[in-house]
Structure formats: structure tokens, C-alpha cells
């Protein structure tokens, strides 16, 4: 299945990614090859088949679920220690409200 450059740009937007023009050209070829291979799945008859999302299902019920108890969490300093930009004990992000 061939994908267009517009489609790839649209998906990149959805995924919050960016590509240079050169990356895009290589990417489209690789992406199309992979999708061509995946097309083979269409030949499998799944008309009456239910999907599986987890192969080994542990039923969650009130017996086996964890009690909703409060417990100690990370101190503020620890929670922030890997953040790229911190101010006054908070994560700093670019302005979002104009």
C-alpha cells in the first residue's frame, strides 16, 4: 500500500513528530514496504473471531484488587529531579494561555 507524503505528514502531526524532507522520502519507501507485507493479513478469515488484547487474562475483582489505601509518594524534590526545567518546585512549560 502506497502512502502519500501528505498522509505521512498528517500521521506525524498526530504523533507529535517531525521529519526533514530527506527523512520523509526514505521513510515513505520503508513505510510502504512494511504496509505491503502487513496487507497479507487481509487474507486471513476473521469473520467470526473475537479480538484478543491480552493473552493471559487475570480477572480483576474486589477480591484480588489492591486496597485503595493512601501511601507515601515521592517527595517533591525527588519527583522533580529528572525534569528538564523546574521553577519554584514546579515543572516549567511554555506559556499555553495567551
Amino acid at each position: 500500500m502506497a502512502v502519500t507524503i501528505e498522509e505521512v505528514r498528517h500521521i506525524a502531526n498526530l504523533a507529535n513528530l517531525e521529519f526533514s524532507e530527506e527523512e520523509l522520502r526514505t521513510f515513505i519507501v520503508q513505510f510502504s514496504n512494511i504496509l505491503d507485507h502487513i496487507e497479507q493479513l487481509r487474507q486471513v478469515n476473521t469473520e467470526t473471531i473475537e479480538p484478543t488484547y491480552h493473552a493471559v487474562v487475570t480477572e480483576i475483582n474486589s477480591e484480588n484488587s489492591r486496597r485503595d489505601n493512601t501511601r507515601a509518594s515521592f517527595p517533591q524534590q525527588v519527583a522533580l529531579m529528572n525534569a528538564p526545567d523546574v521553577e519554584q518546585g514546579q515543572f516549567r512549560v511554555p506559556k499555553v494561555i495567551k
Binding site: 507529535n16 513528530l17 517531525e18 529528572n82 528538564p84 515543572f91 512549560v93 511554555p94 506559556k95 499555553v96
Partner: peptide, 21 residues
């Protein structure tokens, strides 16, 4: 935002996400 690499140059929040990734 919470951990990991962040790009140096960006214009707004969405641009920051995209360049970072």
C-alpha cells in the same frame, strides 16, 4: 516536561513536544 530530554529551541508548547521527540 516531567523527565528526559527537552529541545533547546522552540516557539510554543506543541513545537516543543515535536522538536523534543
Amino acid at each position: 516536561v516531567k523527565y528526559g530530554y527537552r529541545t533547546r529551541r522552540f516557539s510554543d508548547l506543541t513545537d516543543m513536544y515535536r522538536r523534543t521527540r
